[in-house]
Simulated assay, not measured.
Amino acid sequence: MSSEAYVQEVMKFRRALNLTSISDARLFHDRFIRPSEALAEWIPDSGRMLDIGSGMGVPGIPLLIAKPGLVGVLVERRKKRAEFIRHVVRKLGLTAEVYDADINDLPCLNIDVCVARAVTDEGVLLQMCTPHANEGAIAVLPVPLSHAPVQVNGWEMVSEHSIAINGDQNDIQRIRCYRYS
C-alpha cells in the first residue's frame, strides 16, 4: 500500500470537503506526506497511535501506511472531515478508529504514541494526550525551530532532531520526542 492512493483521495475530495487548496498531487505529497513520513523514524512499529486534530488525516494516515502494525486513533472534531478519514481508512484497508469529537470529551483511549501536525503549543498538546497515554507512551511532535522545549507534568523530553524535508536545507523541521511516565 502506498501513500499515492491516499493522495488521490485527497485530490478527489479536496474541494467538496475543503480539505486543502493544493491541487497538485506532487506538491501535496511534498508538503504533507513527506513531513508526516519523517516522523516514522521515531515511532514504534506497533501500538496505538493517537493523531489529535487529524484534519484530512495528516500525519495519521501516512504514518499508518508506513507502519501497518500500528492501530490508528484519529480524532477530528469536524464531522465531514472525520467521515472523509473513515472513507480513506476503509478504502486503504487501514486499522484505525476515527472519532468526530473533541479529544477532551473522550474517555481514555489507551495510547502508546501521540502525534499531531503543525504543533504550535507543545504544552497544550501534551496535556491533551495525558489522559489517554499509557505508561511509557511517547509523543512525536513537529515543532517550530524557535520554540524551546516545554515541561508538562508526567512528560519528559527524551530527544530532539532537526531534519531537512525533501533534502532541502531551507526546509528544516524540528522533531521533539517526549516520554510519559
Score class of each variant (00 low, 15 high):
38 A>N: 03
180 Y>T: 02
51 D>S: 04
5 A>T: 03
129 C>Y: 07
80 K>P: 08
2 S>P: 07
152 V>S: 06
26 R>V: 11
175 I>R: 05
73 V>G: 03
61 I>K: 01
155 W>N: 04
162 S>C: 14
107 P>Y: 02
92 L>P: 08
38 A>T: 03
84 F>V: 00
106 L>M: 04
47 G>Q: 08
9 E>I: 13
143 V>Q: 00
6 Y>K: 04
113 V>I: 04
100 D>Q: 12
1 M>G: 14
48 R>F: 03
22 I>T: 00
64 L>E: 08
141 L>K: 10
51 D>T: 03
35 P>H: 14
167 G>W: 02
144 P>A: 07
53 G>Y: 02
121 D>G: 09
130 T>M: 06
141 L>I: 09
116 A>R: 09
71 V>M: 11
161 H>E: 06
12 K>I: 11
137 A>W: 04
47 G>Y: 07
124 V>D: 11
100 D>C: 12
71 V>E: 15
54 S>A: 12
181 S>E: 12
121 D>Y: 10
145 L>C: 05
27 L>I: 15
141 L>S: 07
146 S>C: 13
177 C>Q: 12
10 V>F: 11
162 S>I: 15
120 T>E: 15
120 T>W: 11
147 H>K: 15
12 K>G: 13
47 G>T: 07
113 V>Q: 01
106 L>K: 02
38 A>P: 03
11 M>I: 07
104 N>S: 14
124 V>N: 10
7 V>W: 05
23 S>L: 13
12 K>R: 15
137 A>T: 09
154 G>Q: 06
62 P>Y: 10
12 K>W: 15
36 S>F: 02
105 D>Q: 04
51 D>W: 01
159 S>A: 09
139 A>Q: 02
45 D>Q: 14
38 A>L: 04
177 C>I: 13
181 S>K: 10
8 Q>L: 13
174 R>I: 12
73 V>K: 06
160 E>N: 01
66 A>Y: 00
88 V>C: 01
71 V>A: 11
104 N>V: 14
12 K>E: 15
95 T>I: 07
71 V>P: 02
132 H>K: 02
147 H>T: 15
84 F>Y: 03
37 E>I: 09
10 V>M: 09
44 P>L: 04
77 R>Y: 11
13 F>H: 10
102 D>A: 14
169 Q>S: 15
30 D>W: 08
40 A>K: 05
79 K>H: 13
171 D>E: 12
72 G>Q: 06
61 I>N: 04
87 H>N: 12
152 V>P: 06
68 P>A: 02
142 P>F: 13
176 R>Y: 02
118 A>C: 05
109 L>H: 05
157 M>W: 01
160 E>T: 01
37 E>A: 07
74 L>I: 14
8 Q>A: 15
62 P>N: 09
98 V>W: 08
86 R>E: 11
114 C>I: 15
153 N>Q: 13
90 R>D: 15
121 D>C: 09
131 P>Y: 04
27 L>M: 11
77 R>K: 12
150 V>H: 09
13 F>N: 07
54 S>K: 01
32 F>L: 09
137 A>V: 10
26 R>L: 12
141 L>N: 06
74 L>W: 07
147 H>S: 14
32 F>S: 07
83 E>K: 14
146 S>G: 13
98 V>N: 09
89 V>N: 01
162 S>E: 14
179 R>V: 00
169 Q>M: 11
63 L>C: 01
1 M>Y: 14
58 V>T: 14
72 G>W: 02
47 G>D: 07
166 N>M: 11
